[in-house]
Design a protein around this nucleic acid. Sequence first.
DNA 1: TCAGTTATAGAACACTGTGCAATTGAAAGA
DNA 2: TCTTTCAATTGCACAGTGTTCTATAACTGA
Lengths: 248, 248
Amino acid sequence: MSDATAQSKNGRLRGRAASVGLTKERIVDVAIAQIDEKGLHAFSMRELARALGVSPNNIYWHVGGTKEDLFGEIAARFTAAVSQSLPRDKPWQDRLRTVFLSYRDAVSDHANVAPLLGAQLKSNGVANLALVEAVLTALHDAGYRGSALRDAFNALIGGLCGFVTMEFAPAPDDKANEWEALFARRVAEIDADRFPFTHAVLPDFMNRIFVLRWENGKHVSYASSFDFLLDLLIEGLSARAPRQSPNP
Amino acid sequence: MSDATAQSKNGRLRGRAASVGLTKERIVDVAIAQIDEKGLHAFSMRELARALGVSPNNIYWHVGGTKEDLFGEIAARFTAAVSQSLPRDKPWQDRLRTVFLSYRDAVSDHANVAPLLGAQLKSNGVANLALVEAVLTALHDAGYRGSALRDAFNALIGGLCGFVTMEFAPAPDDKANEWEALFARRVAEIDADRFPFTHAVLPDFMNRIFVLRWENGKHVSYASSFDFLLDLLIEGLSARAPRQSPNP
DNA sequence: TCAGTTATAGAACACTGTGCAATTGAAAGA
DNA sequence: TCTTTCAATTGCACAGTGTTCTATAACTGA
């Protein structure tokens, strides 16, 4: 009652007296760290608040809006890092390769955040302007215009970013550990009559086939498949390029 | 007390007396219908139970396990429909085209289920054997073996299914309506110095650029971009095919 | 001095997925 | 026929969740 600074039951101050200098940056930092560590599935606003030593509402106040908005902020953090302006004098093929390889690298460093990035890229793509700019310019330099430019752009973003999103999609929770056994059981169950080829081929050498496997809960690398896809697309775009006009 | 068949407070019977003949099939039916109607975000076990006129636990009993398992059942429903065995005498290029176009069609009929399918395809891909078998056989016929087969397979599944997953990713909840305005605002905010090309090009003709837009909360079609991507991949695979051996 | 703003906490609301225990008719075994 | 087991269902409760509304108190500017 006579205290100069009132305190709440658990001893924590309220109001501006309690200010800990929380910032959007720090929130996003810790959020990413938490997702990296425990996975997107286990991430919650309350847990984040706990880790920050702060009440949940404080986060809402700084981020403004909803959990989804926080996800947007997280995604923006990545998009910024993806591509610093690339030298325009390099061939457009090289520029495309660099951009998408660096996108994959950025995602691969924070695999648990991947699903979030995919969703945000779709719904909030305009925010990812570095990526958009780089790809559009490269395709323009390749001679693509109008609807052909649109389709080429979509094919690249959808195909490559889609690949990455799937590549780093999380294992279904607890099953990560028993994955190897699960895989073996599934393969053994394959109906040899209906799926003769899969039955014959899968068990032998397909231990790195896409979409099928984790190792000890960690992702195996599909880097070579990504490279292959990237090459395929860039070669295809070269072959179909309406005209070669390096200086538009 | 003296009732032959006891009743619970709200008048509903318990135990086998109350059996409504619930089946996994009906659960999955109604679940898909609900997701179609209200979106994946608004889907919950309790809501599903309400729609089925049944207690939530009853669903758990039939599906066994968790919500994630139910999602698995839902995904399986789609995978089954994707590709009935294709005539082996058609060229492998045609077969690939058919398979992936039919995959996109199946997903497009239930756009709200799309995110779920993407995740399940990754974590539970072995279940989707019709798709796997068709793609593997086609690539084998094209002459791909070993690690080249693996990379080609991964590139196709990752690129095309990834595209579809992104294509049908949901708009961020309530923002679907104000999307057009949001898009316009974002475009207007583009920094012309840092992103000159995007700034110049985007507002004009990019109203169907991937990743950027809905119309009245419904998805616009990216079909032509998907076709383009499909063509690019198949042409690329043809050009690189180790050898042409139609009859292995 | 005094209202307004900024940055914090607390409590509460309406949910969620899911586990445990009870209930019942029917089927199976003795 | 009597008893045990099983199949299919409900109710209740637990431990959360995102989010909103309200209180608090120091700073800020007039």
